[in-house]
């Protein structure tokens, strides 16, 4: 009876009556419309409020261009650092057992729950003029706070867990069978990682990197604390948006915002793609499984 009533892959029984279903669906769609679709649409409508010309000229301004350049530069440093860290941390945590593992996992999550403003502040306290290393840095004429290195550090802090967080659950669920087989068959550690592990995690890795990148380019609070807001020099795109907005240059602010919004939409697209690929991979693995040796 139990076997007959199940339709594999499909939810057969929905216990709730139709009116409840419609009510819940309406409620969910209304909330998504109000809180997600409207803000998304507003960005583009506001940006094109005065037509295409003022949109283009807002983006072609030297200050906007320098903000875009600086944002790219910060991301180009911060994202690869967090990528290497994420892969390395996921390898150590997912493939090995060691004491203190769960504590380490918690510590990796720590930057998620620290306010971006506090994240910026800790670097000011380290490297600022009144900070622990401030006098030494001044003596050697090295500028970290109110300069690029500080912005890179703050961004790295805020986007620290993203790659590791995407990889960890996946690599933990995959276990170590395939890697062990590869090593037993004589592959080196690098070969094993490159040809066995990486193909298994590439979509999660791609999403982790692209999310990390979106957050790095969009980081506002932490960078705002350490940047010093020097126009044309230490302004990233989000900071530039703030300045324009506070100067009532709404169209220009939203014009720059559309670029970051497009980046966010690409991020979501990659995520959907990664999930789709992953599900397909799972399905192929399931159809292949009968050919494998049957475990007792």
């Amino acid at each position: 009876m139990n076997g007959e009533s199940r339709h594999p892959g499909k939810r057969a029984a929905r216990s709730e009556p139709a009116w409840v279903r419609w009510a819940l669906l309406t409620l969910a769609l209304a909330f998504v419309f109000l809180f997600l679709l409207l803000p998304l649409a507003a960005v583009f409508v506001e940006a094109f409020r005065k037509g295409l010309d003022s949109y283009v000229s807002a983006l072609a301004e030297p200050e906007a261009l320098s903000a875009i350049g600086l944002t790219l530069l910060v991301a180009v440093v911060a994202v690869p650092c967090n990528l290497v860290f994420g892969v390395s941390a996921a390898w150590a945590i997912a493939k090995f057992e060691f004491p203190g593992k769960s504590a380490l996992t918690t510590l990796i999550d720590l930057p998620f729950s620290v306010s971006p403003v506090v994240a910026g502040l800790v670097y000011v306290l380290m490297f600022g003029a009144h900070g622990w290393f401030g006098p030494w840095l001044m003596a050697h004429d090295i500028k970290i706070i109110f300069a690029l290195p500080g912005m890179v550090l703050a961004t790295t802090f805020v986007t620290f867990p993203f790659v590791a967080r995407e990889l960890l659950p996946l690599m933990q669920s995959q276990g170590t069978d395939e890697e062990q087989a590869s090593i037993v068959l004589g592959a080196s550690g690098w070969q094993t990682f490159w040809y066995v592990t990486l193909p298994n995690i590439r979509w999660a890795l791609l999403y982790g990197v692209i999310l990390c990148n979106a957050r790095a380019m969009g980081e506002f609070g932490a960078v705002s604390v350490v940047s010093g807001h020097i126009r044309g020099q230490t302004n990233t795109m989000p900071l530039h948006i703030e300045i324009l907005y506070n100067e009532y240059q709404s169209v220009a602010a939203f014009a720059v915002a559309t670029l970051l919004t497009l980046l966010a939409l690409v991020t979501l697209l990659v995520k959907s793609l990664a999930e789709w690929k992953f599900e397909r991979q799972q399905r192929t693995a399931q159809t292949l499984s009968p050919e494998r040796p049957v475990s007792p």
Partner: peptide, 15 residues
């Protein structure tokens, strides 16, 4: 809609 739910993760806070 499933994809859009993650928008607040990906959209910069200033935007």
């Amino acid at each position: 809609i499933d994809a859009l739910v993650d928008l607040p993760f990906a959209l910069p806070t200033a935007v």
